[in-house]
Amino acid sequence: MDSLELVSPYLFSYKKKNFVVQEGLLPKDLDALQHVEIWPSDIFLVAYPKSGTAWVQQILVQIMDFYYPEQVEDASNRVRVPWLEASVQDNAARDRPDPRLFRTHLPVDMLPHGIQAKRVKVVYITRNPKDVLVSLYHFGFSWNMLESPKSFESFFEQFLDGNVFMGSWFDHVQEYYTARDQMDIDLRGEVVKLCAFLGKNLTEEAIDQVVEMSTFHNMQKNPKANYKDLLEKQRYKSATMRKGIAGDWKNFFTVAQNKCFDQVFEERMSDLPIAFIWDTKQ
């Protein structure tokens, strides 16, 4: 059995993948995760960290609330869309209303085998990697489980090398490419696509409400969506919802860094026909 290798405080490597150990997970737990019972109706939300997980999580919860009004819960999105990794320790996740929602940052080769075998629906979201880098940089100062970056310059190099939380962004996106679904600034259009993919036909009024409740402004002040409870429990040192825009990377990248990033991006991603929103002005 592969062993956990300490990369930095709280950050470990397992099977050459980087991740933060959650709630005392051990190698045997990660092995067991691949055999967790999967229901055909399960829905999985997958993304590299800081790619919009909280946002799409909010959209999924709102879609399910309108489609299954009898299952509406007065609980935070974190509770309603639990981490997949917690399922090996928390059997309560198996008893959640059908369809069950799960979220994860894990690479594709560490997911339960039943996901592919039962052809369950997986929503994979991507975000332009320059903004991911900047958001992950700030997240290092916010989450207690991560070591604060020494500088933006050093973190920039670590990101390109894949020596950050959850490893290489390039590897993660490439491995999940065939199951991707990108959210962009046409929020309503993407909600409609997501409903169609999930097979949940909502009224025009319901879709409008999902869109309204899933704007950054409304999520930022919604305690069920903004992780305020974790801030109050001192799991975070500061709020995690900063700006909610595309293009913030321009406030951090130097000209040289941007040129370097573009070169690496072209070398690693040129074979994948992925279009990113690099700036809100696009």
Rank of each mutant, 00 (worst) to 15 (best):
F159H: 07
F152T: 03
Q257L: 03
D31P: 02
L33S: 00
D74L: 10
I277G: 10
Q182M: 12
K50W: 07
Q58R: 12
E70C: 06
C195L: 13
E23T: 05
L4D: 12
P49E: 01
A54Y: 06
D29S: 10
A93P: 01
D31N: 14
P99I: 07
K200N: 06
M269P: 02
S238G: 02
R119N: 15
D74R: 11
Y67G: 07
I185K: 15
G140L: 09
A246G: 05
Y236N: 02
S270Q: 06
L133A: 09
P82F: 05
W39I: 07
S13G: 01
D131A: 04
F197Y: 13
R100L: 06
C195D: 15
S151D: 12
L272I: 06
L231W: 14
L30N: 04
D161I: 07
F156E: 02
E190R: 11
V56I: 02
Q58I: 04
P40W: 04
P112R: 10
I274Y: 09
L25W: 05
V46I: 12
F19T: 00
K50V: 04
Q282P: 09
Q158L: 00
F261C: 02
R242Y: 06
E73I: 08
V46T: 10
A239L: 07
K221I: 09
W55S: 06
M183F: 15
A75C: 10
F156W: 02
R235K: 09
L26K: 04
L160V: 10
K193H: 08
L146N: 09
V7S: 10
L84E: 12
Q158W: 00
Y176S: 03
E73M: 11
F159Q: 06
A239Y: 13
N91Q: 14
P49M: 00
